[in-house]
Design a protein around this nucleic acid. Structure first.
Length: 243
DNA sequence: ATACATGTTGGAGC
DNA sequence: GGCTCCAACATGTA
């Protein structure tokens, strides 16, 4: 569920709820909720891995973390973290982090940092990377302030596609490679979206979870790299370590 | 069954 | 005060 493209799929699924009035609120979230009942959803948005359910005076932010799930007009066999009812319809969120935002979203979100946004700025991402020369590329791609929505799968696949070793420091990347990296995080995220919609995402993984490099046909590596210490799959032979 | 996985956070420690 | 690190969280799957 958690990477940005999956949130776009959810946003599209929830679009029909825009304009609908909440008739019931339940759930085991311990976050203090404002009066939601009787209010109408004004918009459904996303920023990176966050779902934003907008109301006139506040926004419900849902983050699915690692295990979060949802059901629309269905229920799981588990108490929901938050359930919003709309007459006979309902939206259920499980195992997710709920937060209420009172600030105007434009004041707290930089839409140009969201890889799935039409406002995405290649130039700003390049500038942010220039500021962190010592950071490893495997960590930089997971930095939500730079690539909001990119997750571990996108990280592994992009580095394999552009043939860059995950332990390369950002500052050692040739300028052209850095630009290619920024571009491919976005390009791959949109491929991810289309494949996920068609239920064929896994089938397209080139290196993520793989034991053999599909290009070299030799054993691939699995290691926990960077400050993020996340599972990283790569090929020593065809992914260049710049130093 | 035990470990691990598409992720973030808050508080301790420096 | 600010930065970094890591334990904590939580559920389905292999």
């Amino acid at each position: 569920m958690p990477e940005g493209p999956s949130l776009v799929i959810l946003k599209e699924a929830l679009a029909p709820f825009t304009g609908k009035k909440v008739t019931g609120v339940e759930g085991n979230t311990r976050v203090p909720l404002p009066a939601i009942k009787g209010k109408k959803i004004t918009a459904i948005k996303t920023w990176g891995k966050e779902l934003l359910i907008c109301f006139p005076e506040f926004t419900i932010r849902v983050h699915f973390l690692l295990f979060g799930t949802y059901r629309i007009n269905e229920r799981k066999d588990m108490a929901p973290r938050l359930r919003l009812s709309f007459g006979k319809q309902e939206i259920n969120f499980y195992t997710s982090a709920i937060r209420i935002l009172y600030e105007p979203l434009n004041e707290i979100y930089d839409w140009s940092a969201d890889v799935m946004s039409p406002d995405w700025s290649h130039r700003k991402a390049m500038a942010k990377l220039r500021n962190i020369p010592g950071t490893l590329v495997c960590d930089a791609i997971l930095d939500q302030r730079i690539f909001a929505g990119a997750g571990n799968i996108i990280k592994n696949e992009v580095l394999f596609r552009i043939r860059v070793h995950p332990a390369t420091p950002v500052g050692k990347l040739p300028a052209r490679k850095r630009s290619q990296l920024v571009k491919d995080v976005v390009d791959y995220s949109f491929l991810f979206l289309e494949w996920k919609k068609a239920y064929v995402l896994k089938k397209h993984w080139l290196i993520h979870t793989k034991k053999i490099c599909p290009r070299c046909n030799i054993p691939a590596h699995k290691a926990y790299l960077g400050k993020t210490n996340r599972r990283t799959f790569f090929c020593d032979n065809c992914q260049v370590f710049y130093d």
